[in-house]
Design a protein around this nucleic acid. Structure first.
Lengths: 110, 110
DNA sequence: CTGATCTACAACCATTTGGTTGTACAATAT
DNA sequence: ATATTGTACAACCAAATGGTTGTAGATCAG
């Protein structure tokens, strides 16, 4: 089948990125303001390197962007990734509602 | 911190479940109609056992339900899981919009 | 210049994931 | 009664994940 392979792996990365509570927290933080990588690292009970990896996962998933400023790397939320995820879930929701409507029709007729 | 540990692992499972294209396809299918596990397995180029595992992952994530009918196991979509995921992404979207609005204000003042 | 800070990246480890094959059992069909 | 079908589950394997420590290069402060 190979339906839209590019988009599929993109979605794999997107949802994989969300599948970790530390990463979800990072997204929440950087969506609300600016943080350096070490600024983020200070928030969690794990090594700097571990947080660095989480940030990398989020970056690959297009959920955040990094920008170098002096010796720091500033992390910001990337709105596009979020929109994409929401859009997909909207699709599912849509399909489900249609099915629910069909079921209601059948019950009404019977 | 340990914020709402139950909900966090729930979300871990939810997004983890979405992070695989086969599983996303299964969700689409069973949201649009009824399938047995073997009916689903026939659709993919992998073993029955592999599909069985995917279904188990989706079940643990509350994205589908199984119901025994004769010797078959009927798989259906579970609306609640989908709603939960959408709600979370809505939260992020909300935060982002607020931030975007603040930025616009600052630019207008400057 | 020197030392502290921020980042990047490699190597390593335990656990999980996504797949396989094989076995066993219940339900249906012949 | 027997064969087929649908499911469950265990054992196994390679690769990915989430963490660690250690090393090294930039940038900034004193």
């Amino acid at each position: 089948m190979v339906v839209d392979q590019l988009r599929e792996t993109e979605l794999d990365r997107l949802f994989q990125a969300f599948a970790d509570s530390t990463r979800r927290d990072i997204v929440r933080r950087v969506t609300g303001g600016e943080y350096s990588v070490s600024g983020l690292a200070a928030l969690y009970a794990m090594s700097f390197a571990a947080v660095q990896k989480h940030v990398a996962v989020l970056e690959r998933a297009s959920l955040i962007t990094k920008e170098k400023r002096g010796r720091e790397q500033i992390v910001r939320g990337d709105h596009e990734g979020l929109q994409k995820a929401r859009r997909l879930l909207d699709e599912y929701e849509q399909i489900w509602r249609q099915r629910a409507a069909r079921m209601a029709d059948i019950l009404a007729e019977g």
